[in-house]
């Protein structure tokens, strides 16, 4: 069976993308607000739960501390998940262009 976090929800997807660089929780929210052009603004409980969940599955991990805040970053496993999701989405996108892909060429 598919992993229970797959396909990635918008929240999880954005967090994994944001954590390709090390960031603490609040900075993750700020970065996501920016890279989503202000369409995704995470609330505190949602962010906390998602970070817990992603750490539990080993897709992100704490890599240090900045003051009292924990800094997280994506793991190799998390990057592999992103790669998988990228391929899945690329395939879906390809279906948008031209109805039958095998008719081309």
């Amino acid at each position: 069976m598919k992993h229970k976090l797959l396909p990635l929800s918008e929240t999880m997807h954005y967090i994994l993308l944001a954590l390709r660089e090390p960031l603490h929780g609040y900075a993750v929210m700020q970065k996501i607000e920016k890279i989503s052009n202000g369409t995704v603004i995470l609330a505190a409980g949602t962010l906390y739960g998602a970070i817990e969940n992603l750490s539990k599955h080993g897709w992100i991990e704490p890599v240090g501390e900045s003051g009292r805040r924990k800094v997280y970053m994506i793991t190799a496993e998390g990057s592999a998940i992103l790669k998988m999701e990228q391929n899945r989405l690329l395939h879906i996108l390809s279906l948008y262009e031209g109805s039958e892909s095998n008719e081309e060429i």
Partner: peptide, 15 residues
């Protein structure tokens, strides 16, 4: 304007 602690269905459902 940011008065909620949950911003998506998944986390509200988990609550």
């Amino acid at each position: 304007d940011q008065n909620e602690i949950f911003s998506d269905r998944q986390s509200k459902g988990n609550y």
